[in-house]
Design a protein around this nucleic acid. Structure first.
Lengths: 140, 140
DNA sequence: GCAAGCTCGTTTGCACACAAACAAGATCGA
DNA sequence: TCGATCTTGTTTGTGTGCAAACGAGCTTGC
């Protein structure tokens, strides 16, 4: 008796595919919207949707942990797209909100951001795109 | 006349979904194989498949740029899983190869790595898994 | 009313990931 | 043959990401 080494094809593994598709997506996004990154845009989008939020709350809404959202918010503050203020009620809370410049940049880039998604999915048919989105949603 | 702000649903964007699914996958991988990271495992897998490779060549085979693969190789060397040697023919080239420990760790973890892929795709049926892999492959 | 436990934000340390710029070796064409 | 060009590896700077540990503020149960 012996155990054969099982075959392992890196190129067919879900993790490797996810990494490669993400690379392509980031490259498309960066070409279309060079001013900010995908995570920064996600933060702007959620602030626009939900209004001012605590920093950690915003992190949860955008799937970033506390350490990560802090870095993202810091860079957005540095770029003048977002501002922070202490919560008068809860002494721990740091409320993050869009500045006028942030709201304007977000509004101006929505169409480009939607185009990024379309371009990323360009190799697929309409039905295939919907299928992929649906399958990925279930792996969350 | 005016232009309505188009709707932008972050949760439905391909980039955001990719990030979230990747997070879940990395978490599953890290729980199953705590010794090394996904990228390090990818490097070991390609070295096992292709034999010793130049550092940049290995980077291309695993979809990492020159700066990234250097960091990965450095950490694998530090962990004793890989070794580097100057190429006698090409004075620029740095040949990377598996050590015995690296080859052994890789062989021992293949089954676990395959299980990671299975676990990541667990919410999907067999047919859906194949469909997802196929769709993602076309977005490379 | 108060102690235990939770949440908020912060910091540090590590590991990708890419852009840009660089030095040195290899190659290929005129 | 020799100069332009390409390739190989390196470094620096910036931006995610996560784990772990921390202090300070809030809340809940008893």
């Amino acid at each position: 008796m012996h155990t054969d080494t099982p075959a392992y094809s890196l190129d067919d593994q879900i993790g490797y595919l996810l990494r490669r598709v993400t690379q392509r997506h980031l490259s498309i996004f960066n070409a279309a919207i060079p001013e900010i990154t995908t995570t920064q845009f996600a933060a702007l989008a959620k602030l626009a949707e939900l209004g001012p939020q605590g920093q950690n709350t915003l992190g949860r809404a955008t799937s970033m942990d506390a350490a990560t959202i802090k870095g993202v918010v810091d860079r957005l503050v540095r770029g003048g797209l977002v501002q922070t203020a202490p919560d008068p009620v809860d002494g721990r809370r740091l409320t993050v909100s869009l500045t006028d410049a942030g709201a304007q940049l977000y509004a101006e880039r929505i169409a480009a951001a939607l185009q990024v998604s379309t371009d990323t999915l360009a190799p697929l048919s309409e039905a295939e795109r919907a299928c992929l989105i649906q399958l990925l949603s279930r792996l969350t």
